[in-house]
Simulated assay, not measured.
Amino acid sequence: MKQTLKQIKISDIPDALQRLGISQDTTINLTIETVEEEQEDILTLLQQIGQEAQAKRLTDEILEELLADES
Protein backbone atom coordinates (compact mmCIF):
# COMPACT_ATOMS: atom_id res chain seq x y z
CA MET A 1 0.00 0.00 0.00
CA LYS A 2 1.27 3.47 -0.85
CA GLN A 3 -0.33 6.59 0.61
CA THR A 4 0.80 10.19 0.30
CA LEU A 5 0.06 12.64 3.09
CA LYS A 6 0.71 16.27 2.23
CA GLN A 7 1.21 19.21 4.52
CA ILE A 8 0.65 17.39 7.77
CA LYS A 9 2.03 18.60 11.08
CA ILE A 10 4.43 16.24 12.80
CA SER A 11 2.19 16.18 15.85
CA ASP A 12 -0.67 14.89 13.65
CA ILE A 13 1.26 11.95 12.15
CA PRO A 14 0.17 9.30 14.70
CA ASP A 15 -3.51 10.18 14.25
CA ALA A 16 -3.17 10.22 10.45
CA LEU A 17 -1.55 6.79 10.44
CA GLN A 18 -4.29 5.45 12.68
CA ARG A 19 -6.98 6.86 10.34
CA LEU A 20 -5.26 5.04 7.47
CA GLY A 21 -5.60 1.81 9.43
CA ILE A 22 -1.86 1.39 10.01
CA SER A 23 -1.15 -0.24 13.36
CA GLN A 24 1.61 0.90 15.69
CA ASP A 25 3.56 -2.29 15.06
CA THR A 26 3.70 -1.85 11.26
CA THR A 27 7.04 -0.94 9.69
CA ILE A 28 6.75 1.87 7.15
CA ASN A 29 8.98 3.99 4.93
CA LEU A 30 8.70 7.68 5.67
CA THR A 31 9.93 10.54 3.48
CA ILE A 32 9.94 14.00 5.01
CA GLU A 33 10.01 17.25 3.06
CA THR A 34 9.53 20.50 4.93
CA VAL A 35 7.00 23.02 3.64
CA GLU A 36 7.88 26.68 3.52
CA GLU A 37 5.79 28.66 5.95
CA GLU A 38 5.35 31.50 3.49
CA GLN A 39 2.44 30.54 1.26
CA GLU A 40 2.14 31.87 -2.26
CA ASP A 41 -0.64 34.34 -2.71
CA ILE A 42 -3.57 33.29 -4.86
CA LEU A 43 -2.73 35.69 -7.70
CA THR A 44 0.74 34.23 -8.08
CA LEU A 45 -0.70 30.74 -8.05
CA LEU A 46 -3.31 31.60 -10.69
CA GLN A 47 -0.63 33.23 -12.83
CA GLN A 48 1.49 30.07 -12.67
CA ILE A 49 -1.52 27.95 -13.64
CA GLY A 50 -2.21 30.26 -16.58
CA GLN A 51 1.39 30.04 -17.75
CA GLU A 52 1.29 26.24 -17.58
CA ALA A 53 -1.97 26.19 -19.52
CA GLN A 54 -0.48 28.41 -22.22
CA ALA A 55 2.63 26.24 -22.39
CA LYS A 56 0.37 23.23 -22.95
CA ARG A 57 -1.51 25.17 -25.68
CA LEU A 58 -4.77 25.36 -23.76
CA THR A 59 -6.87 27.97 -25.57
CA ASP A 60 -9.99 29.75 -24.30
CA GLU A 61 -12.06 27.68 -26.73
CA ILE A 62 -10.64 24.38 -25.44
CA LEU A 63 -11.17 25.51 -21.86
CA GLU A 64 -14.82 26.35 -22.61
CA GLU A 65 -15.30 22.90 -24.14
CA LEU A 66 -13.75 21.23 -21.08
CA LEU A 67 -15.92 23.22 -18.71
CA ALA A 68 -19.14 22.90 -20.71
CA ASP A 69 -22.05 21.44 -18.78
CA GLU A 70 -23.12 18.32 -20.67
CA SER A 71 -26.19 17.61 -18.56
Rank of each mutant, 00 (worst) to 15 (best):
K2V: 13
K2T: 12
Q3C: 01
T4M: 07
L5G: 02
Q7V: 09
I8R: 10
I8K: 12
I8C: 08
I8F: 08
K9I: 02
I10Y: 11
I10M: 11
D12T: 11
D12M: 12
I13Y: 12
P14R: 15
P14I: 12
P14M: 14
P14V: 11
D15Q: 15
A16C: 12
A16R: 15
L17P: 07
L17D: 02
Q18G: 06
Q18R: 15
Q18V: 09
Q18W: 13
Q18N: 15
Q18C: 09
Q18D: 11
L20A: 15
G21T: 13
G21I: 14
I22K: 14
I22V: 15
I22P: 03
S23E: 13
S23H: 14
S23Q: 15
S23Y: 07
Q24R: 15
Q24A: 15
D25N: 14
D25V: 14
T27R: 15
I28R: 14
N29H: 12
N29D: 14
L30N: 05
L30T: 12
L30H: 08
L30W: 08
T31Y: 11
I32G: 03
E33N: 11
V35M: 02
E36G: 11
E36R: 08
E38A: 13
E38I: 11
Q39Y: 03
Q39T: 07
E40K: 13
E40S: 09
D41T: 11
D41Q: 07
D41M: 04
I42L: 05
L43G: 05
L43H: 09
L45G: 00
L46S: 02
Q47T: 08
I49V: 09
I49G: 00
I49F: 04
I49P: 00
G50R: 04
G50M: 02
Q51P: 01
Q51L: 05
Q51A: 08
E52M: 04
E52I: 09
A53W: 03
A53C: 05
Q54L: 07
A55S: 05
A55Q: 11
A55T: 09
A55V: 00
K56M: 08
K56H: 07
R57I: 00
R57V: 00
L58T: 06
T59C: 02
T59Y: 05
T59R: 04
E61P: 01
E61G: 02
E61V: 04
E65T: 11
E65V: 07
E65R: 09
E65A: 10
E65F: 01
E65Y: 03
L66N: 10
L67I: 05
L67H: 03
A68I: 02
D69C: 00
D69K: 08
E70F: 02
E70Y: 03
